[in-house]
Design a protein around this nucleic acid. Sequence first.
DNA 1: CGGCTTTTTGATGTCCGTCAATCAGTGTGG
DNA 2: CCACACTGATTGACGGACATCAAAAAGCCG
Lengths: 268, 268
Amino acid sequence: MTALPQYRGKVGNEMVERPMDRLNRPGFAAAAVEDLLTGAERLRQAFLQTPVRFAARDTALARASDPEPAVFLLHSGFAYRSCAMADGRRAILDILVPGDFTGLDHIVLARPMEEITAADRLSYHALGAAAVRALMADPAIALRVLALIAEARWRGDRLAASLGRLDAHARICMMLLDIYERLRRRELINRPSFNLPFTQEQIADHLGLTLVHVNRTLRRLREEHLVLVDRQVVTIRDLDRLRDLVRELCPSVEIPEPTVSVEAAVEA
Amino acid sequence: MTALPQYRGKVGNEMVERPMDRLNRPGFAAAAVEDLLTGAERLRQAFLQTPVRFAARDTALARASDPEPAVFLLHSGFAYRSCAMADGRRAILDILVPGDFTGLDHIVLARPMEEITAADRLSYHALGAAAVRALMADPAIALRVLALIAEARWRGDRLAASLGRLDAHARICMMLLDIYERLRRRELINRPSFNLPFTQEQIADHLGLTLVHVNRTLRRLREEHLVLVDRQVVTIRDLDRLRDLVRELCPSVEIPEPTVSVEAAVEA
DNA sequence: CGGCTTTTTGATGTCCGTCAATCAGTGTGG
DNA sequence: CCACACTGATTGACGGACATCAAAAAGCCG
């Protein structure tokens, strides 16, 4: 019964300084960073002013048929974005952790093709697509929204590359390390162990495998003393080796998504 | 020697009216549509004022190491977005056709992980990320940029679902129909045949297969009288059957991306 | 305890990758 | 004009990673 990680957006103002050096990369204008930070804060505030909503496990926040979809900010619990294939199979396109925004596409795309579902008991904030669109009149917020979507897209690209070019072992390693890093960056965990409220079938749907093969691969990871996945608790046994292994696969891991610095600054 | 499809952005103003009814879906405010349309036009104009650039086959428009990346609007020819895996393998994440914008992530993400490469002789417009960021001060343009990224992400999601849950035959069908529909919507072709300047190895890298298996599957498609891919010319023999086949796989095909209406209006 | 979901493990098959060779098209230079 | 090299397409033989089918075990909950 590990407590669910809960997200608390701390509103510091030291955040304006710190990321500057970290984001001091060629081609990234200081003005843009400042905009991103103020935009992040304003967007967050807008969501925090909405009432907290709750969803039980396996209930949908947004359906493919929803007339007026919303944008969500997860507060606690995990969710996932999925789309159903015609033959009843399912593809889980994105895993969402506390602190994530999702549904931003709805600002411009009507009738999303995907569903957003709670993986366990979830608390979140919701704001209608129209409201967020109105907020975007603020250029800082517009830039922040753009950064959030771009980051989500970056994750999607990584997933596609992973599905296309890696085997089951590598895919699972990437996924687990990825989630670990995201939780850690948001300071939702500080040990290499966390609760992952997904069944092996859901993991399979995410990684393009079958639950049987996921199970076998998890056993192998356990035998290698790399990662232990028991029930829905993930324990990374050898973080360094896991990092090396994943780094060898996808070069992009060495370069974390740039907006992360903003994330960390705003959320830490 | 099929002539390369060339993209001519016609600048009509009848476009403000027509899509309104088409986009008259629940939850899509008329104001947003109007913004999207004016934003689309302004963004296009900004790019059209830059000189046309050219790139030879297999040259990179943007590299993963680029200090100040740019945003591109393709004018003629195909390109692709790819990322290299550590073992030398490659994943082609997106196929770009004339009229596509790409590199919009660079507005907020420094150091993209991906490369953009010309698949054949290419002509295009380029605008620095900072310049586009400045353009985004215009809310209409900001909304349009958001729509473009959201659409690209939608394509990425489809690819991921396809890689994870479909076999080689289905993946190739989806890809070919997809490209066909995109070219047709932009009125770059009017017959079910087009030039596709990709080697079978590149197709394999896009669909997570090997060139050998792509070859075999293409032969099967030919034998089924579904699609004929000879050299780099694609000829769809039975469009209806192909559509049915793809529709059976991914339900989202029935709902084309909403911004397409805007595309069609602006570009047709 | 009985019904449920989830995990685990075995046996068997298949889609697809790997290795390898041939063939066709294209360009290059002697 | 014809070797020659080179890239891309094609095909066969073989093996492996993963799917499918099936069943049992283990948690979980009323």
